[in-house]
Simulated assay, not measured.
Amino acid sequence: MPRTIRSRNLDLIRWLDCGHKHTAKKLDAITNTNYLSKMATGEMEISDRKARSIEKTLDFPVGWLDRDNVALIMTAAIDFELHRLLVDYPEDAKAGLVKFLIAGPKQ
């Protein structure tokens, strides 16, 4: 089974969270150490239900496992700066900016 965004993110969590055993302990109500390893390496699928349970247990936002968090580590400085500036804006302002950017430049 090929690696997926979910498996890469789960692997990222393991390395950022003091290793496999520490992460496995946090997720012991959801999965065991062996299955955690298989999910993180892509040998075992991470279902929608399992993904949401992992996110909830780790207090991550819903959908965190489904976005390419590994690519965020490689973000260019200007993109990171935009993110840093937007974090504190209200949700409606962010939604308006997204609509503006999707519409693209007017010719």
Rank of each mutant, 00 (worst) to 15 (best):
P2A: 14
R6H: 03
R6E: 01
N9S: 04
N9G: 02
L12F: 03
L12N: 03
I13V: 10
R14L: 07
W15V: 07
D17Q: 15
C18P: 13
C18Q: 15
G19T: 06
T23D: 03
K26N: 05
K26I: 12
L27N: 00
A29K: 10
Y35G: 04
S37L: 11
K38F: 06
M39P: 00
A40V: 04
E43H: 14
E45N: 07
I46N: 00
S47R: 03
S47T: 02
D48H: 06
K50I: 10
R52M: 12
R52E: 08
R52Q: 10
I54Q: 00
I54H: 00
E55L: 02
T57D: 05
T57M: 04
L58M: 02
L58V: 00
D59F: 12
F60M: 14
F60S: 02
W64A: 08
W64Y: 09
L65G: 00
R67C: 06
N69I: 02
A71Q: 10
A71E: 09
I73W: 12
I73N: 04
M74A: 13
T75A: 10
A76K: 05
A77Y: 14
F80L: 15
L85Y: 12
L86F: 06
L86S: 08
V87N: 09
V87Q: 11
V87R: 06
D88E: 13
P90R: 02
A93D: 14
A95Y: 11
A95M: 15
L97F: 05
L97D: 01
L97H: 03
L101S: 04
I102H: 15
A103W: 06
